[in-house]
């Protein structure tokens, strides 16, 4: 039954952790890639994620359907994105600052309306058992994959294709690289950016719904430990490429599983440091992959933080 697999438990736990933990990072960063490709940065996705987690859980509980919860979270997220997009289309309004203010507003509203939903138990999202071929319960558990994770993977490929091969992708890239060029082509940059930010918000909302409806699978005020904020950082790390976002999210999730996995095989001292592994790893990769010239390859030129 429960086979003792010794040290193999560590890589296996990291694989499982990567799949379990990465989904919120994946969704938020995919959404933010689209937003940033249009030349805007939305730092407020943490607030959107938390509000998505709350509204998703609340709706799933009230209707009895987890999928309605996901839809509600996406809708709520899109509204937050829309607000961000509209406000930042006003001249002289700073997108980073508005993002921070909306982070506060999103979190505040989520906590405000979320109080009655901390106690109740809402239905979970279903999982697909991809580990049916193995006798090991550890493998089966690691490969219990949520539909949203698979959806995120497909979405990453689809967005990469969209950016590269479609008219929509071209419009987005032109707007992100030069407002003037876009206007010359008869594109209205503000409208594209508003839609791109709304799309980013919707995905962040879905990321939040994953937290509250699947893993860890409950709503409380500590549900997010900064996933929304880190995911925005991962976009820069992933060089604005949706496929890279997928790998960045996986890497971050796997590194996050390292701490508990090491403790479970008896490596117990300094656990705070092993818990910091995802942050250290991301920073190290970031330092190694950057260069003095500061040329952020792949960065949209209209993006305020890369100017």
């Amino acid at each position: 039954m429960n086979g003792d697999i010794g040290l193999w438990a560590v890589p296996l736990a990291m694989l499982g952790g990567a799949i379990r933990v990465s989904t919120p990072f994946l969704f938020v960063s995919l959404g933010e890639v689209i937003t940033e490709r249009s030349g805007r940065i939305n730092l407020g996705l943490e607030g959107t994620l938390v509000f998505g987690a709350m509204s998703g859980y609340a709706l799933a509980f009230l209707t009895g359907s987890a999928w309605i919860g996901v839809l509600a979270a996406a809708l709520a997220g899109a509204i937050f994105g829309l607000v961000h997009g509209l406000l930042c289309s006003l001249p002289r309004v700073n997108d980073i600052a508005i993002g921070i203010a909306l982070m506060l507003l999103g979190t505040g509203l989520a906590f405000f309306f979320g109080k009655p939903f901390i106690q109740p138990v809402a239905p979970d999202l279903p999982a697909i058992n991809l580990g049916w071929w193995s006798d090991l319960p550890q493998v089966q558990a690691a490969l219990r994959v949520n539909v949203l994770f698979l959806l995120g993977f497909v979405l990453a490929l689809a967005l990469a294709w969209m950016l590269r091969r479609t008219r929509m992708g071209l419009i987005l890239r032109v707007v992100g690289d030069s407002s003037d060029a876009a206007r010359a082509l008869g594109i209205r940059p503000a409208r594209v950016r508003i839609l791109a930010t709304a799309f980013g918000g919707a995905l962040a909302g879905v990321g939040g719904a994953y937290l509250s409806l699947f893993y860890p699978g409950s709503w409380n005020e500590g549900i997010s430990s900064g996933q929304g904020l880190i995911a925005v950082a991962l976009v820069i790390f992933a060089r604005w490429s949706p496929v890279n976002c997928f790998f960045a999210a996986l890497l971050f999730g796997a590194a996050g599983a390292l701490g508990p996995a090491l403790q479970s095989v008896g490596v117990t001292s300094g656990y705070y440091l092993s818990y910091a592994a995802p942050f250290v790893l991301t920073l190290v990769v970031l330092i190694l992959s950057s260069s003095k010239s500061g040329a952020l390859t792949g960065a949209p030129r209209e993006l305020s933080i890369t100017k």
């Binding site: 406000l87 001249p91 700073n94 203010a101 507003l105 979190t107 505040g108 509203l109 906590f111 405000f112």
Partner: peptide, 19 residues
């Protein structure tokens, strides 16, 4: 969380007013 909501309203308003 009421105060967080208030702060959110106020800050969005002030930042948007820069326009």
């Amino acid at each position: 969380a009421t105060m967080t909501v208030l702060q959110g309203f106020v800050f969005v308003a002030i930042l948007a007013s820069e326009t």
